[in-house]
Write a protein that binds this DNA or RNA. Structure first.
Length: 479
RNA sequence: GCCCGCUUGGUGUAGAGGUUAUCAUGCAGGAUUGUCAUUCCUGCGACCCGGGUUCAAUUCCCGGAGUGGGCGCCA
């Protein structure tokens, strides 16, 4: 089993020993040559123990790596040796002992000698928490486990290297995205998740009680980030939860997901498409070039190889991303034999047709206004091939899947109110929002990106639930 | 909301109208071992729930629950 560090000690800029350990297990391997002969205290999960006689080997694992602990009755005493030999897998154990160079394995003729490894010769052990047996799922077993079982026991599932790597990578992706937006002058903000009005007037919200009045969990920061534009913040972004009560039961839908949103003043749809592609390029490039991120991808690939899945390759997308205007998309789909008419949404089957020639990121700009929400801007006279009004709304797809929707927003209050009315929404209910357009508002544009969907594409996950610690969907809300 | 599947030890599976219910992993015990995915021996552990058909149902039928996939819609 290839061992890949999840958290690289040499890349840590600040490491302070804690009350429970003097060194991490990854550190022992990294700096082992300097530590030989020194006393250390380490702690971790007992992945396995071997040896029932006068000696015993323990594979100990923490967030940084693994180390073998060697126990001998002479050094640790009969009683402690027996305790460890009877210990259950995944129990947390703390060992104190001396660092030593591990005896090299017997290597067959012609095979390369592995790099030196280090172990701890234990002089004492402390049982922190004994794991009950049997485990609801094996952390190291080479047996498939169904997603449902894994999610019921997510804490154990997370101990598996490739699952752990997924969530460390998720943190990296958010970091890279955040990094990039800051370089373009965006400010991180937070908008409320408890709201009085449905964002787009739809009925697919989770109702809740707000003291003695009805309220909803917000489906999008849309209206609030627009108010920030009216407030002169110019460039904002938010990474936060969005809640949708849609009964969409698919590999790519969640009732609660993290939306990566921006809004940008004095800008149109083309401008913010640029922001989006530059940010995604930065994320992909960073994952491809950063040592830690690459190690995480490697860890995921070790598992994928065991499962017989295709290995993940981080291919940095070229700038600019292809742009296929809605009008052209309809034409292309028709040419490929798809059943679609101008004005239709592009369904999954037709997205597959488009994706045949566009397997990665591509923009779909200039949708019909009739398919877009009231807050999307339109330029009068900008019409499609059938004479219908186009909008300044766009989608970003990766292959068949929608990653983002965005657009330039309607800043003209009269048009905005008219849009609300024509879409059967009551401007009165949106007064808190419409008010923001009465006293001078910049033209602005923005988008919302599904973090989980991006992670799916980056890691090859076939189900969005793989990328969420505790996913919320039609059936599941516990744990 | 619609369509189609599936439900067998802790986990993942094979299978048949009457079986001692398969295999792997795991667990318990033993032998061996400074081991390196150790190896070997012995043992433990399962047919989702309710109703029906039948001499007999875990297997067939109906219903329920759970779960997986596809679609609509979306990020």
């Amino acid at each position: 089993m290839v061992h890949v560090l999840c958290l690289n000690p040499t890349l840590m800029t600040t490491w302070v020993p804690t009350a429970f350990r003097t060194h991490t297990l990854g550190e022992l391997q990294e700096k082992g040559a300097d530590l030989v002969g020194k006393d250390v205290t380490v702690i971790g999960f007992m992945e396995a123990n071997r040896g029932k006689g006068a000696i015993c080997f323990v594979d100990l694992r923490d967030g940084t790596g693994k180390t073998q602990v060697f126990l001998k009755a002479d050094n640790i005493g009969e009683e402690d040796l027996d305790t460890v030999q009877r210990m259950t897998r995944e129990s947390t154990l703390q060992f104190t002992g001396t660092v030593a160079l591990k005896r090299p394995p017997k290597v067959k003729e012609g095979e390369p000698t592995p790099p030196p490894a280090y172990e701890v010769l234990a002089t004492s052990v402390n049982v922190i928490a004994r794991a009950e047996a049997p485990l609801p799922l094996g952390v190291t077993d080479n047996v498939k486990v169904e997603l449902d079982t894994r999610l019921d026991n997510r804490f154990l599932d997370l101990r598996r290297a490739h699952v752990n790597a997924m969530f460390r990578l998720r943190g990296k992706v958010l970091q890279y995205g955040r990094e990039h937006l800051i370089t373009e002058g965006f400010v991180e903000t937070h908008t409320p998740k408890i709201v009085a009005t449905a964002t787009e007037g739809g009925a697919d919200l989770f109702p809740m009680q707000y003291f003695d009045r009805p309220a909803f969990l917000n489906q999008s920061p849309q209206l609030f980030k627009q108010l920030c534009m009216s407030g002169g913040l110019e460039r904002v972004f938010e990474i936060g939860p969005a809640f949708r009560a849609e009964k969409s039961d698919t590999y790519r839908h969640l009732a609660e997901f993290i939306s990566f949103d921006i809004e940008c003043s004095w800008a149109n749809d083309d401008d913010v498409m640029g922001v989006l592609e530059r940010m995604l390029h930065h994320i992909w490039k960073s994952v491809a070039e950063d040592e830690e991120s690459q190690a995480l991808i490697d860890t995921i690939n070790v598992f994928r190889a065991e499962q017989g899945d295709e290995l993940v390759e981080v291919i940095v997308p070229e700038l600019p991303f292809p742009r296929v205007e809605y009008d052209d998309a309809i034409r292309i789909i028709k040419e490929k034999g798809g059943s679609i008419e101008w004005g239709d949404d592009i369904d999954a089957e037709n997205s597959d047709l488009l994706a045949q020639d566009l397997p990665q990121f591509y923009f779909l700009p200039r949708w019909p206004m009739s398919l877009k929400p009231f807050y999307i801007h339109q330029i009068d006279g900008e019409i499609g091939s059938t004479g219908e009004q186009l909008s300044r709304g766009f989608d970003l797809n990766f292959g068949r899947d929608e990653m983002t929707s965005g657009g330039q927003r309607e800043h003209r209050i009269d048009v905005l109110v008219e849009n609300l009315r024509s879409m059967d929404l009551d401007p009165e209910e949106f007064e808190f929002y419409v008010a923001g357009f009465r006293h001078g508002v910049p033209p602005h544009a923005g988008w919302g990106l599904g973090v989980e969907r991006i992670l799916m594409k980056l890691t090859g996950a076939k189900n969005v639930r793989e990328t969420v610690l505790f996913p919320r969907d039609l059936r599941r809300y516990c744990p």
